[in-house]
Amino acid sequence: MEEASPSDPQAEGGVETSRPTAGGVDANASKEHLYEIAQELDVPGRSTMDKDELVEAIEKANDRESRRAREAG
């Protein structure tokens, strides 16, 4: 059975670290998986993005959705 691991260096270090996080995006996921998520979120330009760009774009899309939900509710 595969062991769960933190999604980024910040999560690995816990609350006492100050490294940037991936905003809840699993930065260890495969590029293909990240692309599928970006596709679901309708991220523009996703087909030309590398893995790090996909993580950042998904994080931004998630932030936008969270902001919309807060404003609506």
Score class of each variant (00 low, 15 high):
R67C: 08
E53T: 01
A72Q: 13
E3N: 03
E12C: 10
T48S: 07
V55P: 08
A72Y: 10
V25W: 06
A29L: 08
R67A: 14
K60V: 11
D52R: 09
V43R: 02
E16A: 04
T21N: 11
E53K: 03
D26K: 02
A69L: 15
E56T: 08
L34Y: 09
R46M: 07
L34G: 08
Q39L: 12
E65D: 12
H33G: 00
L54K: 07
T17F: 11
K51C: 07
K51W: 08
D50Y: 03
T17W: 12
S66C: 11
S66A: 15
S47E: 09
R70P: 04
S66R: 15
D50I: 06
L34N: 09
G24Q: 03
A27W: 14
L41H: 01
D42S: 03
I58P: 02
E2V: 00
S5L: 13
A72M: 11
K31Q: 07
V25T: 08
A57G: 04
L41K: 05
E59C: 04
E32V: 12
L41F: 04
D50P: 02
A61Y: 01
L34H: 06
E36V: 00
R68I: 13
T48K: 08
R46E: 01
S66F: 14
V15K: 06
S47V: 02
Q10I: 07
E56D: 10
S18E: 04
I58C: 02
T48M: 03
S5H: 14
R64N: 07
R70D: 13
A72D: 09
G23W: 02
M49K: 05
